[in-house]
């Protein structure tokens, strides 16, 4: 199945879109991409996963957010709210013929609460791949990436110091991405928690690691969604950490799990 590539006229300029579609779709998913370098590591896997899903009647749409990939704009000018505007626009672009879901990868999960709040009832399920659940912790991890890279280069920096720079209104560059203070502040304010997921008929959370139980934050999230009357499942797939691995990884087990979970949610 060959994906359709297109430039959409988004709310903040041209949006590069990759759509996998089929003649008789059963469901459509909007992909919520991970941040920065993680998307580059995941892109090939996401394309293969989309190809496997569409063969099963599940269409997907992936847009490059403002200032990323082949879309318009500079990363340094990217803002959290404009990315949300673009994802909301992409949700609309999915039409109304079949049920719509979200497929969030890593920090893409942080878009989910606001997106569901903006468009209640638009989405009935969400699939998470190794979700980042705390924006604040995620931002610190990004800053730590810079601190460690500096340390290896013999320059002493600290996460706290970089946070102060951001607070003073200065952008911080991390691994080639210039992060504006407003973007950093918005990211660190987001938390993926059970109340935000209310209204979804089904939530699936997949973590990728060597045979172990789901992590504590995921177990807590699943329990909280369940307690609020929702249906949530967590599973662990034993394969490479494709968003972080030094060599591009496209684990077949990850693709298979996405296909299986989507099929299960459509049967339910």
């Amino acid at each position: 199945m060959t994906p359709e590539l297109a430039y959409l006229e988004g709310p903040h300029g041209a949006l590069f879109a990759v759509r996998h579609s089929t003649v008789v779709p059963r469901r459509r998913l909007l992909l919520l991409p991970p941040f920065g370098e993680e998307l580059n590591k995941c892109r090939a896997l996401l394309t293969r996963t989309a190809a496997a899903l569409v063969a099963d009647g599940v269409e997907t749409l992936l847009v490059d957010l403002h200032g990323t990939g082949d879309s318009a704009g500079e990363f340094g000018a990217a803002r959290w709210t404009s990315w949300l505007d673009e994802l909301e626009f992409a949700l609309d672009a999915l039409g109304n013929e079949v049920p719509i879901g979200l497929f969030a990868v890593r920090s893409g999960a942080l878009f989910v609460p606001e997106l569901l709040a903006r468009r209640p009832g638009r989405v009935d399920r969400a699939l998470f791949w190794q979700p980042v659940s705390s924006g604040n912790q995620f931002l610190k991890q990004l800053l730590r990436l810079r601190v460690m890279a500096s340390k290896f280069a013999g320059v002493e920096e600290s996460v706290a110091g970089l946070q102060q720079e951001l607070a003073r209104g200065a952008a911080v560059e991390i691994a080639g991405y210039e992060i504006a203070p407003a973007l950093a502040a918005a990211i660190s304010a987001v938390k993926l928690a059970a109340p935000a997921l209310q209204g979804l008929a089904r939530v699936d959370i997949v973590e990728f690691m060597s045979g172990a139980d789901p992590t504590l934050p995921v177990r807590q999230l699943v329990a909280a969604v369940g307690a609020a009357g929702g249906e949530a499942h967590a599973e662990v797939v034993d394969c490479e950490q494709f968003w972080a691995s030094q060599e591009l990884a496209q684990p077949a087990a990850a693709i298979a799990s996405a296909v299986r979970l989507c099929a299960a949610s459509m049967a339910a």
């Binding site: 991890q141 990436l145 890279a149 290896f152 690691m209 992590t215 504590l216 934050p217 950490q241």
Partner: peptide, 18 residues
């Protein structure tokens, strides 16, 4: 075991052990 690995390991420790 480079700087990127250090960061990934710390991240995994934070996420897996809470």
């Amino acid at each position: 075991f480079d700087s990127m690995a250090v960061v990934s390991i710390l991240t995994a420790i934070e996420e897996r052990f809470g």
